[in-house]
Structures are given as C-alpha cells and as structure tokens.
Design a protein around this nucleic acid. Structure first.
Lengths: 356, 356
DNA sequence: TTGAAAGCGCTAACAG
DNA sequence: CTGTTAGCGCTTTCAA
C-alpha cells in the first residue's frame, strides 16, 4: 500500500548507471557530464526521489542544521527572535532544530545533548533562569561545535555572545524617571544571577545612587521573569501598604502581571502606581495606559547571533570569539512620562510592522 | 584540539567486548547481563559517549521525531499551541522539528519535503493562508507518514484533522450581539477560502439571516489574518464614513489592528465602534477596554493533535482516520457587552495561568 | 567521464 | 549471554 521511498540505487538501476554517478549528478558534481546530469535529474524528479538526510549526514560531515535552545516560546521576545532566526536560516539553506527548556536547567541539558547527538553544525542558546552548571557548555566547546549565547549569557570565557546592553538601558530609563521627578522607585528584578537580571538591576541601583538616592531594599524584589512574579510581588507591596511611586520591571511579562494586579485591586496607572519595563512588545502600545519601555531590537539580536554562528561554522578553528553588545532605546508611551499625572505623551506612535 | 565524538567502538575496545554488546547494553536489551550492562553504562558515561542519532536512525526504522509546520510563530495562538506540543513531545520522548512557512505555500511545500527527507515519524501541520495545491499532502500519505491537520484544514479526504468549531463559535457570538441589540454588524473575514475563515464567516452570515437581518456587503471585508489587514479595513470603512456599530474579526490580530486604527483616529471603543473577535490571548484582558472573544483552547488543540498523531504512529496501517472538533466558548469582557454603552461586565476575571 | 570499494555509526537477525 | 555477519543510504577516495 504505501510507497517505499525512492533511493539512489532505484534511480541507478533504472538508468543502468552506478549509484555514485547518480549521487554526483544530483549534487552537480563536475565529474558528471551536463547531459547525464540533466537526464538523471529529470528521472529522479519523475520518480519522486527525496534524499535520505540521515544517510547523507552520516557520510557527509555536516548536517546543515543549527540547534537553538530557548527558555520559552509563547513569549513575544523569544517568539520574535525565533521567527527571525528561522528566516535567516531559510535564506542560508540551514534547518533549525528548536528546543524549549521551559526555564528548566535539567531539560536544557538534555536538549543540548540531543543536539550534539543530532550532529548539528552549531548551537544558539539563551539559557534558562535556573541554569547554574556550565559543564555542558564546556562539552560543546570540546566537541568543537560552534556556540553562541544569546541575550542570557553565562559567566564563562571563550564563547561567542550576543547580549543587550542591559546596564545602560536600565540606567537611562531610571535617569529619565528621576529627571521627571520620581524618587520612590521600586524594582522587580527577576533573577539577578542571570546576566540580564544583574545588568538591569545594577543599572537601576547605580542610576539611583549616582543621583544621590538610596535604594529602598523593600522595593527591590527578586523572583522571576514571568507574569506570576509581577502579580505577586505587587500584591505583596500592596498588602504591606508600602507602594513606591514607580516600579521598574525586569521584563514586560512582569509588568503585565502588575497591570493585572492593579486592575483587580482597582487602582489606576499611572495615578496610583506608575510603571516602566525592560523589553518591548507591540501589544504594549495598546494597553491602557500604553506601557513605556526599554526596547530591545529582537530582530537584530537574532540576525547578529546567526551571523556570528554561521561565520564560526564556516571558519571553524580559525574563527575568533566575538562578543556583540546590542544597544537599547527608551520608548516613552503613556507611563513614566510625568510624575503623578496621566498625560499622554506626544511620543513615538508605534507604526505597524510592514510584513503582517 | 577538539575531541572527536566517542563511538560504540571506542567503548567496546576499551572493555574488550564487541560493539553489539555495548549497543545492546546501552539500550537495556535483555540479552545482556545486569552486571555487564551496568559496567558498560558506567564506562560510556565516563567516556562521555553520546549516540550518533544519524547513524541510529539510519539503521533503525524510526527517528522518534515529529515534524510540525505552522504559518507563523510570533503569534499568541501558534506560540501557545507550539509550546504545548513541545511539552507533550518531551513527555513522550519525541523530538520536534518545527518549520515555519510564513504563510507562504512554496516554502511550506519545501519544508514538508525536508521533513520527509528527515524521515520524521509523523507530521502535524497548520496550512498557510495561500495553500491551494494539496499534491504534497498526497505524497505524504503515499509515503505512509502519519499526518494531522491542525486548525487550518484543507478539503481533502482520508486525513486526520483537529479543528475548532468555527461555525458554532461565530454563530453564538453574533447571536449574543444581536440579543443585546446590535443590528449593524460588520465582519472582517480574513481568507474565506481557508476553513477557519469560511466557518467563521458562514457562522456570521447564518446567525444574521436566521435573525432576519440582511448582511451588508460593504461591511463584509476579506483580506488576511494579520494586524495590517484589520488596520486597513477599518480605515477604509472610516474614510468611506460607513462604520457599522460592531465589528466581528476573524482573528485577534485583526482586532488589534482595529484598536490601533481607532486609537490613532481618536475614536473610542465601544462608544464609537464595538468589537468582538475570534481567538483569545491573555493580553486581551489587559486592553482597554478588555476585548471580548470566542476562545479557542490552544492547549487542547495541541494535545489532541499530538494524541492522534502518536496513536497513528503507534498503530500504523491499523489506525483509523480521526476527525476531532474542538468546542469554543464565548468570553465576554468589556466589549460587545451592551449596545452603545461602556459598561464593564461582571464577567470572568481571567486568572493567571499557574505555571508562569 | 565513470564506477568499484570502503566506510560513516549504528541496529537487527542469526548463530554460537 | 555474547558476538558475527549484513546491511541502512549515502559520500568520498582512488583506479580505470
């Protein structure tokens, strides 16, 4: 009933040539004459030949495949990065094997092992929020598999990294807030053990201190990068009757959690509590009030990561480690634009992306 | 410099046993004694062995790998489905090869061919909005590769499908709108050539007609499933000075496009124009006003699709084609709750998902 | 220009 | 219980 897949040998038999000839012809090897190449291609097309990649990759040394490991996928930041990675891979004739760690270090490790077993040509990874053991990354390096850390970068040397300038982004945002009159500023910091949490948190603290304001430790809360954490952290402060005037959140899901809590309690933004977050998503401009943020250009992160990885793959041993730093920009919408007033700013009206 | 990967033969040599013994031991084959199995496992662990999946899959007949093709990824609906698919795959020890067609039929076809070449054990696909040629799906069937169509389903027989009950969902939503007093209802219908567009559109038309209201053709606009289309369709009606009272959009991104346009123009929802859409996303409850919608349970779609596919893989020829229909539910928030009034409903306060 | 031989790393069938 | 023999489908020498 079901067709068996056509193999090189089927084609060879039909044409009374050797398997090798067919193999070469299909890959436009100069050994084979134009004429036979053409014939062979035509026939294999007719027969519905499709190469067995397992076999091809077993004898060849490269798979034209890139492994990508991310912590989450139903998340604008990663979704957007992934989309771009897929596009760049497609243009360069690479396949992507995407793995999702769900912020779980154990799972992440298994995924990397699987990628090694799959003989991917290179790996791009954004580590989980709980990853502490970097041994597996050493293994990857030892295997000679090109590796790029993206956004969430561990503290190990000799690896490619593409990171966002978290520190400066946070610093400038807080500086802006101070300039418009805020003093009582809190920070929902996520995990400060991960570079992104650390950089953003440090930017916050330094900006405060540089402006002669001491950080209130009650308002500096660690926890996670998701909504639930923002929701709970806000409720905690609210119950303690100890709200700052402005909260700077480490990611935008954390800010959404705050919105949610604020809505439920019946408070108002920005009158009762004002907000700004690290990370952009097009939905933020549709929130009410529209959420201001520090924008990380996801497509650039994706492009840079792919660019570095592909070059590393191409050059192999000759490649020199690259550390890329991506700049952020402050996008002011309707939050964090004036202390204790709800003045919609004249700021950037976000245009819709063209390709939708 | 770089370590070569350890193979079975390396382990065999070190232990003075045959390759086969090692191979069997590592897979807990009953042939091998507990003791040697234990020893072999210990040693290969120490040596850092990781199986070569290319080789394994070439000699075995299955790859424990599932191919998934979707039109977009940076989109709540698909992102959410994909996340769940990854989870279910992980639990069942399958790997996922995810391909993104970007709503492009040509690309979709190439992706499917690649998946066949990769010898995936099965394929789940949500077809692109422009897919017309179904020949490739026949090829998949002929190859005997289990196939499940998810959400967007082509009109061909003899295939597994997991679809949402678009018709009933749309019908009930419109019925609700009519009940609360709306008569001038428009519909941004996307592509009605695809099942989801067709079903939703038909539900809309039938509900209207069944309640004795004729559909105004000016208010029934086709175009696409993305924001840009919603944005432009609304502007078109606005410029023509021909707005209905309520617009039912085929997807939630289309509704977001409308929000965007409405904001820019300076109109208000729901006073000037009211909205309801097909498809839920947690951000909708944070919009102002919170957007009412017809909820499609993404996790159930993902689970059902995987369940059917895995069973089809397990049973092979003995499997009987399944057609699954997923029910929707109406979630009323702050739009489409009362004609020409902005009354926040007492409706479902959406709780946060636990696992975030 | 073509093809025969060898092998990529692994598994399945059989025999000892 | 263990190992020998044959491949899986393809590519890469190397000889004709």
């Amino acid at each position: 009933m079901k067709d068996k897949a056509i193999t090189l040998s089927d084609i060879a038999q039909k044409l009374n040539v050797s398997i090798v000839t067919v193999s070469k012809a299909l890959r436009d090897h100069p050994d084979i004459s134009k004429q036979t190449t053409k014939l062979i291609k035509k026939v294999s097309e007719e027969m519905g030949y499709s190469p067995n990649l397992m076999a091809r990759n077993l004898s060849a040394r490269n798979t034209n495949t890139i492994g990508v490991v991310i912590p989450k996928i139903a998340h604008f930041f990663f979704g957007s990065i992934i989309e771009k990675i897929y596009d760049v891979a497609f243009e360069n004739n690479y396949e992507i094997i995407l793995m999702v760690s769900q912020e779980n270090a154990e799972r992440e490790k298994r995924h990397i092992q699987t990628l090694l077993s799959m003989k991917v040509d290179g790996i791009i990874i954004s580590i989980s929020q709980e990853t502490k053991d970097y041994e597996i990354f050493e293994t990857v390096k030892r295997r000679g598999v090109p590796l790029v850390f993206m956004d969430r970068v561990p503290e190990i040397g000799g690896v490619n990294t593409v990171a966002v300038d978290d520190y400066t982004g946070a610093y400038k945002a807080i500086e802006h807030a101070l300039n418009i009159g805020y003093k009582n500023i809190g920070h929902f910091a996520g995990y400060t053990k991960i570079n992104i949490g650390y950089g953003r948190s440090k930017g916050f603290v330094d900006a405060m201190n540089d402006h002669g304001i001491e950080v209130n430790p009650d308002w500096l809360i660690e926890g996670g990068f998701g909504e639930k954490y923002g929701y709970e952290a806000f409720l905690k402060l609210y119950r303690e009757n100890n709200l700052p005037d402005l909260i700077f959140t480490v990611t935008y899901p954390v800010a959404l959690g705050v919105y949610q809590a604020v809505h439920e309690i019946g408070l108002r933004i920005p009158e009762d509590i004002d907000l700004i977050c690290f990370g952009n998503a097009k939905m933020q401009s549709l929130l009410s009030p529209a959420l201001s943020c520090i924008d990380q250009p996801t497509h650039m992160i994706a492009e840079k990561s792919m660019e570095i990885l592909l070059e590393n793959i191409r050059l192999g041993e000759d490649f020199e480690i690259k550390k890329e730093m991506i700049d952020t920009s402050l996008i002011l919408r309707e939050t964090c634009v004036a202390k204790n007033k709800s003045i919609p700013s004249e700021s950037d009206v976000q245009n819709l992306p063209a390709g939708k």
